[in-house]
Design a protein around this nucleic acid. Structure first.
Lengths: 347, 347
DNA sequence: ATGAAAGCGCTAACAA
DNA sequence: TTGTTAGCGCTTTCAT
């Protein structure tokens, strides 16, 4: 099992206590002693045992990110961001994927590995507010995305309604009159899809345009394939459309492909906007107009929430653990990035 | 800190030993006793403490995946695969990114969080075979990608030379004569870039084509931006070229964009093949011909290697820990997926 | 089928 | 400035 502190202590002729002090570079260690201990550690190849440390300290330094899919461009970008933030704060990140499966979500929520992680950042798809509320695990939880009005836990969001409205308004301002909403309804995404649809509807209303149900295109998933399929159906139905508001960039890229195959030009015949600002959309042909959430801000906000809860739980701050501060909602900024897919003749 | 087994034991009127038996569903537990214990656990909201368990068992159930970037399409797809495999085997996956930074790689290699993980799957960019060899951590290591002939640890690879040769030969078979190699040299990637370049060179030689240094295009990174930049330079230099072998799909997608901007048609004027078979390449316009490594097989092979080492270390298998089995090299299959970017007039 | 008790490696209160 | 010691929660050998 490798050398322990006691082994090091013996070799250096000191007590375990001193070794511990050296390892955690506490004050009050004589330079000579420290040198001897470090020497002994090197000779023995000593590595502190994380399990023992966690057990003793009651904290592991582990934080879990639970997302539907780690290989979607959006979530992997999020994971990368959070990974950086975690690194900066001395945390180690553990990533789990749920595929939006409620059962899996429930299991992970109730202790990724029970009592292993100090906190959880969770992006739910399958679970609603009620189920989120009565989880067992005491570790602080930060939710990504809305959960209706119910404040179950701290959560970090972008203003989906406003963002979708902006994006749609942009299309209307470019002279488009038949703006379909792709991803209006989906099997997953809980609130998010609905909120983006609402933003779309508001923009139409504001522009005095009718809300045609034929323009609300449901999707089976949020992947490119689903976007392509929905657009193929749209083309087959010959529904007249001159713009597409897509609730994710992945859907938009699938749509782009299907439009291309259908001989429809983008943006000349149909303009396109997406949501998420994934890397791909910056290189697609044409490049994708999109809503860019401030990802670093999301990661930072999530980490801040956790950090506060951890500090409170520790009893450092006022309040203490039980009956602690009410759930916070952090709204993170976004911006509309205009690219080729919505460049029109009219300014 | 939450209820412990002792608390549960007291409430159920049994000893901690019995609670432990119930939790680990050992045999020899009377149905009635089990029911009482489970009842008590539910009432108290008992969750076994992972740290204590790891300490006692000397095993945490944690496995780390260390990659350069978690948000690159290739590595995130890999992470998703490995995450599934880990789940199946009852492991929890921990993901770390290094950005190819040698210092960070070294640190992670020497115990992601010392003695925390049972095994490490590592995709090195910055570190060479020598540095990999003398790491401190005793946890089993599986390397992804070649490390020259030096067998430092188990490793899982695709046959990069053969794959690159196939891909290039395909271009030649389509009648292309001036096939450039994009990503021939890069700051990162250790062996991999060199091996793919060698495959490219072999195909040219086999076809009796000259190897023109002007056709070896170095890149600053493996991102789309670098691919685009390299191609812009190529176009500016007016180097005649009728095909591009790109050592990754991301580079190919960047190249596609730059060619498009330069008014060069793909595949009519310039044919393109990539490497990795990332999702984007299946929807790009045109879709991307590419080498598809068998990702599930890679994840499985990596997990198998770890599992064997873990079993050996435990003393289950013959051999025991020290002087254990020599490093294994697993070669995983790949295939060339032909799509629009290399569809030519000639079959 | 269950209990008693030791100990995994570390930290921290108390002593010196 | 350093030593002594108890104990974090769990598993497991030895008894019964």
């Amino acid at each position: 099992m490798g050398p322990s502190m006691r082994d090091v202590a013996e070799r250096a002729g000191v007590s375990p206590r001193t070794v511990s002090n050296v390892v955690n570079d506490a004050p009050y260690v004589a330079a000579a002693t420290r040198a001897r201990v470090e020497q002994a550690m090197r000779e023995l190849g000593f590595r502190p045992n994380a399990a023992a440390r966690s057990l003793r300290r009651g904290r592991s330094g582990l934080v879990a990110l639970v997302v539907p899919e780690v290989d979607s461009p959006y979530f992997s970008a999020l994971a990368a961001e959070l990974s950086e933030v975690a690194e900066q704060r001395g945390w180690t990140l553990l990533v789990e994927q749920t595929h939006g499966d409620p059962q899996r979500e429930r299991r992970l929520l109730d202790g990724v590995r029970a009592q292993l992680v100090d906190g959880v950042v969770f992006s739910p798809w399958g679970l609603g507010a009620d189920e989120l509320r009565d989880r067992q695990d005491p570790a602080p939880l930060v939710l990504l995305g809305e959960q209706g009005d119910a404040r179950v836990a701290d959560h970090v969001v972008v203003d989906n309604v406003a963002a979708a409205e902006e994006a749609t308004a942009h299309l209307v301002a470019r002279g488009r009159r038949r703006v379909a909403a792709l991803g209006a309804r989906s099997a997953y995404g809980t609130q998010t899809a609905a909120l983006r649809l609402e933003g779309w509807a508001r923009a139409l209303t504001a522009a005095g345009l009718p809300r045609d149900p034929a323009l609300e295109l449901p999707v089976a998933s949020l992947h490119r394939a689903a976007g392509a399929e929905a657009v193929r159906a749209l083309l087959a139905a010959r529904t007249p459309v001159d713009a597409l508001f897509c609730s994710t960039d992945e859907l938009a890229l699938g749509a782009l492909r299907a439009l291309h195959e259908g001989g429809v030009r983008v943006p000349e015949d149909v303009a396109l906007v997406g949501f998420d600002d994934i890397e791909d959309g910056r290189y697609s042909i044409p490049t994708l107009t999109t809503v860019a959430p401030d990802l670093p801000a999301i990661a930072r906000a999530a980490a801040d929430c956790l950090e506060q809860r951890l500090a409170a739980g520790r009893g450092d701050g006022p309040g203490g653990a039980p009956g602690s501060a009410p759930p916070r909602a952090v709204v993170v900024p976004h911006r509309l990035v205009i690219r080729e897919s919505s460049a029109g003749l009219r300014a």
